[in-house]
Design a protein around this nucleic acid. Sequence first.
DNA 1: ACCTATGTTGATAC
DNA 2: GGTATCAACATAGG
Length: 249
Amino acid sequence: MPELPEVERARAQLEQGALGQQIVAVDDRDTYVCRPHAPGEIAEALTGATFTAAHRRGKTMWLDTDRGPVLGLHLGMTGAIVFGPPGPTPHWDRFTVELAGGTRMALRDKRRLGRAVLDPDLGRLGPDAAEISRDAFRTRVGTSVVPIKARLLDQGVIAGVGNLLADETLWRARLDPRAPADTLDEAQLDALRRELRAAIREAIALGGVHTGQVMPARSRTGSCPRCGAPMSRAVVGGRTTYWCSKEQG
DNA sequence: ACCTATGTTGATAC
DNA sequence: GGTATCAACATAGG
């Protein structure tokens, strides 16, 4: 369930493990994960090159190379970056890169919703949720009749927020996820941004969004970790949503 | 054994 | 532009 915090940790892993070593071989035979590329296309572009930088925006990562081609990586829902010795690849390793230093870097993903592509399109992503300015947050997030939660989940508006992080943030800010975004005043939007940044910071430090406080309350019998009131549950923005029936009503 | 939830993206119809 | 629904994936859990 990778959201921004998990992806940032994965990016740091890539930075630590993949930079500065020449690419010896690439396995891009999974045509679903590597779509729309044909098998061998990514391998041909990358073999012999060296990764020079690891970037992230929202949930999308990309690695620059000294030869120009850029490798885009997305973890989907169940993806992870793993490093290990070269050798037979576990069948959940959907895309692998063998490095000259004697390591194998893999996108391991049971569900195959992750992606590995050449020169990823970042143009449709909004500003990163951890870095968006106060003004940009106000205008991008707060100027739509869509429920505020749906707005937070829209990667073209702001990049990196998933279902759990959205619930966590709205709970921290004591805001009703169903409220039309343009009914929030500036103080509420500023507070929402503040809580979003804090939730992201804590999740990165603790290991992921599943360490959030509302996580244990996400069940039909759950109660608010702050006031003990029962949690409400509904589909908002197409996703299962939990919120405090008392504080966020 | 069946059914549903899981999270994200993208395509489709309205 | 929206919303709503579905499909894609493969597994875990009820």
